[in-house]
Amino acid sequence: MRSHLILRVVSKLLIPFLLLFALYVQFHGDFGPGGGFQAGVIVAAAFVLYALIFGLKTIQKVIPPALLEVLVPMGVLIYAGVGVATWILGGNFLDYNMLDSHDPSHGQHLGILLVEAGVLVTVASTMLLIFYTFAGRGR
């Protein structure tokens, strides 16, 4: 893959915007289409594109597999941790109204934001890790 000049230049131009779009989809999910699942897949797709053009070795310098193996359970823990936090604050499991004592609707927004962040982390890192294992098997 040394010689594909057009692919290399275009992908280098595209990848920052792909990641920016993923962040937009993530944080605008309350008001427009989007959320953790979509953003996670878009992040993973951006890194997979990078790996397809520049090779598995290069991408694993940016995101080592050991980091991904930490991130995969981390997302689930963030999600469940929000539930435990609402327990400690005196509500039911995943009852976001407890997260803000003044205005329940702020609590809802905060809870949804945190939970979507957990989904983003798990989905993106799992998809990328699955791609790593398939691509690394061939050699």
Partner: peptide
Amino acid sequence: LTAIVVGVATLALGLA
């Protein structure tokens, strides 16, 4: 929405 993402996870498992 959730079914799609779980679908790709099971597809990956099947391919493995």
